[in-house]
């Protein structure tokens, strides 16, 4: 079996947080944003990454792209370690992995025209291309994402949110990457525009054979687009499975609560269903609970949960879950 497109092994991301009022030389506190995350992505596949705010989804994505340093673990691109790459080698690697951001307007330089923005990755990775060649490619890409090529000389503030996101997608796709990391690409958009952008991403994925790492906190969007879904809680991946399997048969208590929180668009069904509601807030990632990080809010927590970190177990063909008591019924 050849190496997968992207494999993440035990990746950890740690941030240093300066303590308020501390001496300049005292050691900073460590914020464990991602802890021992592992995942695999095959070409052309979509991996959805869900979790509540602060669960480390974005940090994991940024460590994969390389804009945030990984403190531990490996990111393997076709078997080659990306984390240990030199800066120059990493820059050329940027051609294969591109990113789409949450706030579409924030992701576009307000002083550059749309044409310049979309052309930037091309100019970076193919400095020998002629101006005419760049122009035709940018025009073709604009058309591909559903924008008029005549708009290349416009500036980002002249576009709507959905259009800006299309520009961001055009910029990400212009170098024909193999993986696009989408960090909540639709969270800032209207629902109707969300659907357009998600469909556009799916079309492009089919046509170009892209792999997508799709981050969202909206489970219904992720279910629509993903082949596989991974659920994160406080920096750990607690469950990962094929999309239909995970939605139909969630095993981890956190996944169950997450799925139960998705509203059903029917008041009758909504009122009659039983939904376990999680109490409390996400614990601080600076001082996470011992053992299983979810135990403070878990409906089926056992005394032993505080003692050791639950191992990731394989149940079923491709269903991974990090909870030894997943079979206990929720009461």
């Amino acid at each position: 079996m050849s190496a997968p497109l992207l494999e993440v092994r035990d990746l950890s991301v740690t941030f240093k947080v300066a303590q308020q009022g501390a001496w300049p030389w005292s050691a900073p506190r460590l914020l464990q944003a991602v802890k021992d995350a592992s995942l695999v992505l095959e070409p052309g596949q979509t991996l959805g990454l869900v979790g509540e705010s602060g669960s480390g989804k974005s940090s994991l994505a940024r460590a994969i792209v390389g804009t945030v340093p990984a403190s531990n673990g490996q990111v393997l691109w076709r078997g080659e370690d990306v984390v240990g790459m030199g800066a120059a080698r990493h820059r050329t690697h940027g051609r294969h992995v591109q990113m789409v951001f949450q706030d579409p307007l924030d992701a576009l330089n307000p002083r550059m025209t749309v044409g310049q923005i979309v052309a930037e990755p091309l100019r970076t990775h193919f400095p020998d291309l002629s101006k005419a060649e760049i122009r035709t490619r940018v025009g073709a890409m604009m058309e591909r994402v559903g924008l008029l090529p005549a708009l290349v000389n416009r500036y980002p503030h002249e576009f709507s949110g959905g259009q800006c996101q299309r520009i961001g997608i055009a910029r990400a796709l212009i170098t024909e990457p193999e993986l696009v990391v989408c960090d909540e690409p639709v969270s800032a958009l209207d629902v109707s525009v969300q659907a357009q952008v998600v469909n556009l991403l799916q079309d492009l994925q089919r046509d170009m054979g892209l792999a997508l790492l799709f981050i969202a906190h909206d489970l219904s969007v992720v279910r629509h687009i993903s082949h596989r879904i991974a659920v994160m809680y406080l920096g750990r991946i607690v469950e990962a499975a094929d999309a239909s399997d995970l939605i139909a048969k969630p095993r981890h208590p956190y996944t169950k609560a997450l799925i139960a929180s998705v509203p059903i668009p029917s008041p009758k069904a909504e009122r009659s269903r039983h939904r376990p509601v999680l109490k409390g807030e996400l614990p601080s990632p600076i001082a996470p609970p011992s053992g299983c990080v979810f135990r403070t809010r878990c409906p089926i927590a056992q005394p032993s949960c505080a003692e050791q970190i639950p191992a990731v177990e394989r149940i079923g063909a491709d269903h991974l879950v990090a909870c030894p008591f997943a079979d206990l019924a929720v009461t």
Partner: peptide, 20 residues
């Protein structure tokens, strides 16, 4: 801002990011 991060993710050199 995300557009700086986008440029870094693409692999634009630091001094080019500063100037551009």
């Amino acid at each position: 801002k995300a557009f700086i991060e986008a440029a870094r993710a693409t692999g634009v050199r630091p001094f080019t990011i500063i100037l551009r």
